[in-house]
């Protein structure tokens, strides 16, 4: 069975946008309920996750561990509310599970964890590790002669970790055409704007310099995202990366481009405003 999906934009883009809106509501509700978590980077990533999960990934909520599934690896594991919200939409977890976010004994751990949540394939939480893991998964797929693909999501701040570039070099050396990366380039990291913490300059040229195929897109334009996913599948002779330009906190006015909402939950009043904006 081929894992490739002919996207051709046959999907109902309006429905994908609506799904992302529902996910955004769950993201702000989850973080509010927990009085903790990372709404900003979840809201920047969610449009990409909705597109990937709804149109591309060969995965089955009835059989989350089926051997030939595609793998989605959320390397920026603090964006767990985004992952949980789409896993709920896909039927991997229940709405009650969403309520267990950051609660002792709940399956929705603070950072995504493969040992706790069905549908999660990587235990993240420490930045810089997911690309190496995705490389290992991709090498295994090649050795198996399988057409399954790996999709790794990184943050732009995360690119400051040296291990990312160790893996980037190795992926090109091993010509892993089944390894696909999307950088959620929201320009903000924990303390401040990336440009104030450690400027990354031209991210696309860095990846090109390492030998990757590179494309850029608007990470909130569903049609552009679908085109980018299609493009990732078209690159088979080497690893490919999409630099998705996003807005941290996208969809909630007071969270947008606001470093304060990297790792802070909305209070009661802020939740009400956010849910009103996300109607």
């Amino acid at each position: 069975m081929s894992n490739k999906v002919d996207i051709n934009h046959q999907f109902d883009v309006d429905e994908l946008i609506e799904t992302a809106k529902r996910c955004r509501r769950e993201i702000v509700k989850m973080t509010h309920r927990a009085s903790a978590g990372h709404p900003g980077g979840s809201l920047s990533a969610i449009d990409i996750l909705v597109a990937l999960y709804k149109t591309r990934l060969n995965i089955d909520p009835e059989s989350p561990k089926q051997q030939n599934r595609d793998r989605f690896i959320m390397s920026k594991g603090h964006a767990s509310p985004a992952v949980y919200s789409i896993l709920y939409e896909m039927g991997f977890i229940s709405h009650d599970d969403l309520n267990s976010f950051r609660v002792m004994g709940g399956i929705c751990q603070g950072h995504v964890d493969m040992k706790w949540t069905p549908g999660v394939d990587f235990s993240a939480g420490s930045l810089g590790m997911g690309l190496s893991f995705g490389l290992g998964v991709s090498l295994a797929a090649t050795m198996d002669g399988s057409s399954r693909n790996s999709f790794v999501m990184l943050g732009d701040g995360e690119l400051q970790e040296g291990q990312i570039w160790e893996a980037a070099m190795a992926a090109v050396h091993h010509e892993t055409g089944n390894l696909n990366v999307i950088v959620d380039c929201n320009r903000i990291q924990n303390d401040d704007f990336v440009d104030n913490q450690l400027r990354m300059f031209d991210i696309a040229s860095k990846w090109r310099g390492f030998g990757w195929a590179v494309m850029e897109c608007d990470g909130h334009d569903m049609r552009e995202i679908l085109t980018a996913i299609e493009w990732l599948d078209s690159v088979t002779d080497r690893p490919a990366v999409v630099i998705a330009h996003t807005i941290k906190g996208k969809g909630v006015s007071f969270m947008e481009n606001n470093p304060s909402f990297h790792g802070a939950a909305p209070n009661d009043e802020q939740l009400a405003i956010a849910l009103e904006e996300l109607k």
Binding site: M129, S132, F133, G136, V137, S138, L139, Q163, E166, A170
Partner: peptide, 10 residues
């Protein structure tokens, strides 16, 4: 560092 996580993926 890369070696450890590539091994985990495998």
């Amino acid at each position: 560092q890369n070696m450890m996580l590539v091994s985990a993926g495998l």
